[in-house]
Design a protein around this nucleic acid. Structure first.
Lengths: 216, 216
DNA sequence: GCAAGATGAGTGAATGGTCACTCACTATCT
DNA sequence: AGATAGTGAGTGACCATTCACTCATCTTGC
């Protein structure tokens, strides 16, 4: 992404981002067509190449943007000092809303996971995963010290397992294959029962994290 | 896949499958090159098109094959009537071994999840996910009736959550992005500590499924 | 105030490369 | 001889990227 892209009018910028995100999410990275993106955004291909070095640069910039958006929503939830389970519930609700409203961004993320080039994958993963890894780990540690969460666990492993649940739910709401899978495993009408899903996931998470013999 | 492919010599067939699986897993569906696959397998492109209708057919056949192989390993573990946790442990070990030995097959599966065409995705998902969904659900139900697993849960939702853990571990061992993510969340040397991973995952699963006040 | 030049954003047709798929042909059976 | 299997050069479509150009705006010297 060149600095020029940061200087063009807001409206044009979001037109381009919307076009790119929807094309990449709809066709996948390889099949996405730069010329289509330019057309959809009502911008010349030449301009697009003034804003981004190449197709990959455009793709990665969009993925990064998408993860920023989700991260900021999560950060908002994580503020305040409620119990871990209250926060998990809020995160789950955020996931349900965000996955539906910004389906394309989640699909982009899934698309990213199939990329192989280590020069791309490593920095992108570090960028996108480190914040959540730290966030969950410190939350769990904090709750552990408060005696709410059991002490006999590897905090980072459990943070990983928790984030796995979040990821699979996001994909379940946003990506076609994972959607089908969700329906097959549970029920066809699972997407009309958001509260039920949250209820069950909470039961699962609660039991996994809770201290066995609660103090007093 | 034409019936001719079933009639050619075993050795040639596996040469083709190996070449196709490694190409699709290494480059992704779109970038995979049919001509390369033919070369690698020491077969003419023409022949390849006598065995498979088109690129997509070849891809789907390979994905299906890969999932069959894993399924048969899982089925073996699921025989016998041990406790759910013993089985989960065995499944986790199978995942660790299989994800490393057959990395390409797991990658293929991840590649499948980014496909969008509903005409492809729906039957493929049904084919691949239904058996595990039924397997886990019936196991959990059985353990519930035996009083080992808590009764206050939606069996199918918990089967889903359990399979999520399995999937994310598979991807964590086999796919570049998920590998990085695993390292970021836990530790760089996590891939040298298979027993530790199993231990922690079991702690998580055990607590999630276990009856709260054990009988007797 | 203004002409002459400089700057750089914006354009889209053209290029060069790639690749799925075909088909006319050959080889090998029965 | 007819059927069946195998071949691989060739075709046509597609698409990322480039580049020669336009045009509006700014700068400078008078």
């Amino acid at each position: 992404m060149t600095e020029l892209f940061g200087r063009i009018p807001e409206e044009k910028r979001s037109r381009i981002m919307e076009a790119a995100i929807s094309e990449f999410a709809g066709c996948g990275y390889e099949s996405a067509n730069i010329n289509h993106i330019a057309q959809k955004a009502r911008v010349s291909v030449g301009s697009l190449y003034k804003y981004f070095d190449n197709k990959q640069d455009l793709f990665l910039s969009m993925v990064q943007f998408g993860s920023q958006v989700l991260k900021s929503k999560f950060d908002e939830v994580m503020q305040g000092d409620e119990d871990i389970l209250v926060k998990v519930e809020k995160l789950l609700r955020t996931i349900q809303r965000h996955s539906r409203e910004q389906r394309s961004m989640i699909r982009l993320y899934n698309e990213m996971t199939t990329q192989c080039d280590p020069l791309i994958v490593k920095p992108a993963a570090t960028d996108m995963e480190t914040p959540s890894a730290e966030l969950y780990s410190s939350l769990i540690l904090q709750m552990q010290q408060a005696g709410v969460v059991r002490g006999d666990i590897d905090v980072r492993m459990f943070a990983f397992l928790l984030d796995n649940i979040f990821m699979m739910l996001q994909f379940g709401y946003a990506c076609d294959y994972y959607r089908e899978r969700f329906k097959i495993f549970v029920r066809d009408d699972i997407f009309q029962n958001d509260d039920y899903v949250i209820d069950q996931v909470l039961k699962f998470v609660k039991a996994a994290f809770e201290r066995r013999e609660p103090v007093e």
